[in-house]
Each structure stands twice: as structure tokens, then as C-alpha cells.
């Protein structure tokens, strides 16, 4: 008992004297390089930081879509049986708002990020980065957000202006006044 008390007191002293915080014990994390975490580090913020090499077009995306998405998201991504990915622009302030990638989503980077991590539903992470760029271009093109001849890559995707970009208000840290 007194041993552990002394140990605690010593720990307190160390805490007071050094910049190493006692709460960091027992320090069992193992260092790992940026290269070795690449397979996991897949989240893409609006800046586009971390977007992989490669590119894709609307025409290429149409094929990817037909192969991997059509059966759930329907012809022209109009929905059924799963979510519609097009349409609804201009509907958000009506009695029947329709939220889709085209009408609601504020960032195009989110579309790339989400498809790459979560779709197709039965085999996520199965598409190549090139295919993800392509199907992203296809969905953005169907929504009239980018021209059909646009090429989506790490440089162009973050620059895509989503129609509903300015209609979100952050309630953190507090609601707007």
C-alpha cells in the first residue's frame, strides 16, 4: 500500500517537473511510417488532400456504373431500389424536398471518398481509384454539375462547385445568432 502511494507521489512529482504527462503511460503505441498507413488513410477532406493519382471521365464512368451500381441505384442513377443519386435541384425549400448528390451534397470530394470506402455495397474497396474517379464524374455529369467531357482527378475534383455548397450552417460550437 505505502509502496504504491510512494509511487503515486513520485509520479506526481515527475508530472510537476517534466513535460511528459503521466496520463500518457504506458506508451505502448508503435511508430509506423506514412507509407505503411497508405491503405488505411483514405479519408478525403474538401481540400482534396490525399486524393490518389489517376483520373476518370463521364464516358468511362457510365461503364463502371452499369457494371457495379445500376442494379441498386437504377437507370440514370434515378434511384430504386436504393437511393436516387440525381435530381431534386431547387426542391429543398419546397414542401417535398429531395436530397441527392446533385441537390444536397456540399462537396464533390465527399462523393469520391464515400464511393471508394463504401460502394458497391456488397464489395466495398473493390473498385480501382481510376474507376472511382470515373463513376464520380458520371454522377456529377448526370446532375449537370460538370460537363460530360470533364476529367476528374486530384486537381479538378476539389474545384467542382456543388450547387448546394452554401446552404449548410454550422451549429458548432454554437447555433448561429
Amino acid at each position: 500500500m505505502s509502496m504504491s502511494k510512494r509511487a503515486l507521489a513520485t509520479a506526481g512529482l515527475v508530472l510537476a517537473l517534466s513535460s511528459v504527462s503521466a496520463r500518457s503511460e504506458p506508451q505502448l503505441g508503435q511508430p509506423i511510417s506514412d507509407a505503411d498507413i497508405a491503405a488505411w488513410d483514405i479519408s478525403i477532406p474538401p481540400s482534396g488532400e490525399g486524393l490518389p493519382p489517376g483520373s476518370g471521365t463521364f464516358a468511362e464512368g457510365r461503364d463502371v456504373y452499369a457494371q457495379s451500381c445500376l442494379r441498386c441505384h437504377g437507370e440514370g442513377a434515378a434511384g430504386k431500389p436504393a437511393d436516387a443519386l440525381v435530381g431534386g435541384q431547387g426542391s429543398l425549400s419546397t414542401d417535398a424536398p429531395q436530397k441527392t448528390v446533385g441537390s444536397y451534397w456540399p462537396y464533390a470530394t465527399t462523393l469520391f471518398d464515400y464511393i471508394r470506402r463504401a460502394m458497391p455495397l456488397e464489395s466495398p474497396r473493390s473498385l480501382s481509384d481510376k474507376d472511382v474517379y470515373a463513376v464520380t464524374a458520371y454522377i456529377l455529369g448526370l446532375n449537370g454539375i460538370i460537363p460530360e467531357d470533364a476529367v476528374m482527378d486530384a486537381a479538378s475534383l476539389p474545384d467542382v462547385q456543388m450547387p448546394n455548397r452554401d446552404s449548410f450552417v454550422s451549429w458548432y460550437p454554437s447555433p448561429p445568432r
Binding site: S43, P45, P46, K99, Y104, W105, P106, T109, T110, D113
Partner: peptide
């Protein structure tokens, strides 16, 4: 900043 994932936007 926030990453703006699908489940904090859509």
C-alpha cells in the same frame, strides 16, 4: 477541419 464525410453532409 472537419473531413465532411457522407454521414455529416448527406
Amino acid at each position: 477541419g472537419p473531413t465532411e464525410t457522407k454521414d455529416e453532409t448527406s
